[in-house]
Design a binder for these strands. Structure first.
Lengths: 146, 146
DNA sequence: GATATATCGTTAGCTGGGCTAACGATATGG
DNA sequence: CCATATCGTTAGCCCAGCTAACGATATATC
């Protein structure tokens, strides 16, 4: 590989990193009324679409340590969005699943949070939207591989 | 606009949001040895390339409130990476600039942090790299507009 | 079957980033 | 000269990360 290519990939990585930081900072501001911030929303999403799931597995999926996930799940539980059930086959682990309220709030909260971003995407040309769509797919595999 | 397009942009926004969360979580792990985490690295970067700059302006650029930036800058100052100077023309404001050590650490820390991401980008095809390059440019303007 | 070991989740305690409210210091305008 | 505005800091709060240590349960070994 040429040295230029390496410099370029470093710049791209740098730029993507910066964009990710600022994107999340912006979106965080949309949270005020939702009662669901990013980590909780993301965890709830996994529970809704991938549940029932154990706390340890959820922590692994979300790339955090179990104590971190304990607190996130406790908050979701106190809000009545998630229920913990003992696993009958293994008393050490729990089975997390979403309540009806949890599923409902996921959709609403997620909508609220990404609404402003979606609005900006709507304003892009079709070509630009295609590029973004492809890029987000590529990025997902890239991130998974890190 | 068709309803399908709106649904699609919401899904894209959703997906980008999720990717951004997981990207930053991954990259945060690369920080251990660097001594510079994301907010400090980002702030230092602005000071290095955009300094001298006032604390308030830096906070605005970084999209955080002044008290938040005060703490970040204090940490950078304690590490000898940044210096505060009184503005001679306006005694209320300060002029932040990077020390030589700050400039050096920025390059090294930034490299370390995005190295694993750059490595994955290197492994992509030329086409995929082009898509990512375009997408990061588009995203930057999108984020700025939110 | 008893005992050692491994695994799951929680608790405790730390660091650090975000915020608002309130304040001192300095500029500026009436 | 005094009222008002602006800049940055301090204080105090919430929440997300982490490690270390622990109780409870499973499992393996003797």
């Amino acid at each position: 590989m040429s040295n230029e290519a390496r410099v370029d990939s470093r710049n791209m990585a740098d730029h993507l990193h910066s964009v990710a930081i600022h994107l999340l900072r912006k979106l965080r501001r949309e949270d005020e009324s939702s009662g669901l911030n990013a980590p909780r929303l993301s965890a709830l999403s996994v529970i809704v679409f991938g549940g029932p799931i154990t706390l340890g597995n959820l922590a692994a999926v979300e790339q955090v340590r179990p104590p971190t996930m304990t607190r996130i799940v406790n908050a979701l539980e106190e809000q009545g969005l998630v229920v913990k059930k003992k696993n009958a086959e293994d008393g050490r682990s729990t089975r997390l699943s979403a309540t009806t309220a949890g599923k409902k709030l996921l959709m609403e909260g997620r909508n609220r949070r990404v609404r402003s971003l979606a609005r900006q995407i709507d304003a892009l040309s079709n070509t630009e939207q295609s590029i973004l769509r492809e890029a987000s797919r590529i990025l997902a595999t890239v991130v998974r591989a890190i």
